[in-house]
Computed example of a mutant assay.
Amino acid sequence: MPGTELDVMIERYHHALDAFVRGDPALQKELFSRRDDVTLANPLGPPVRGWHNIEKVMDRAASYLREGKPNTFERLSSYTGPDLAYMVEIERTHAKVDGSPEALPVSLRVTTIFRLEDDQWKVLHRHADPITTPRPAATIVQRS
């Protein structure tokens, strides 16, 4: 993604994700928009909209993680416009998840949308899920 300010934002975003997998959501929170249309779809629950909902979801998700190793990021696609940008990445790390005694591998498929707000890039939307390998079609069926 070209653009000095956006490159700096993405570097901060990746650094904040390293802190997140150690159980600290503070840096990640700083990067999200505070506007009403901000959204987050994390792998532990349904999508939420609005800063106050996102803050609660981030705190909950981070509480399940500790002692995470730095993430690696595989960029699959990206685009930058004058006031919107996106990137699709695979994030990989190892972390102690939900009280596990050992660090386990974690891989997420992530789409992040950034918006220029008051001359600063902010995260407008993040969607992360664990689908990083092919799966059978039956996995999308909800059973009662």
Rank of each mutant, 00 (worst) to 15 (best):
R75S: 12
G50F: 02
R92D: 10
S77P: 00
R92N: 08
R92C: 09
L65Q: 09
E67Q: 15
S63Q: 12
N42Q: 12
M87T: 11
Y79G: 08
N53W: 01
R75K: 14
E89N: 14
R66M: 15
T80N: 05
T93M: 03
T72D: 08
R49W: 00
F73V: 14
T93Q: 02
Y86S: 03
K69P: 01
T93S: 11
T80Q: 07
P101Q: 13
L84K: 12
A62H: 08
A61L: 09
L108A: 06
T111V: 14
T112D: 09
S63D: 12
G99N: 06
Y64L: 12
E74R: 15
E91A: 02
P47F: 06
R75F: 13
N42I: 05
G81M: 05
M58C: 02
D98I: 01
M58W: 11
R109F: 09
V88W: 06
G99M: 04
G50Q: 06
H94W: 09
R60E: 14
E74M: 13
Y79D: 02
Y86W: 12
S100W: 02
E67R: 15
Y79L: 11
L44K: 10
W51H: 07
K56Y: 02
K96F: 08
A62D: 05
N71H: 07
V88Q: 06
L104H: 09
S78C: 07
V106K: 03
I90W: 08
Y64I: 05
R109L: 09
A61V: 11
E74D: 14
S77A: 07
K56C: 01
G45S: 14
A85H: 04
R49H: 04
N42T: 13
L108H: 00
P70H: 12
D59K: 07
E55I: 02
F73K: 07
P105W: 11
E91Y: 05
R92T: 14
I90F: 12
K56F: 00
G50P: 05
A103W: 06
P43Y: 08
V57L: 11
S78F: 08
Y64C: 01
K56G: 08
N71A: 10
E67F: 11
L84I: 13
R60A: 15
L108K: 02
A41V: 12
V88D: 02
D83M: 10
R49D: 00
P43H: 02
T112E: 10
P47Y: 09
L76Q: 06
T112K: 00
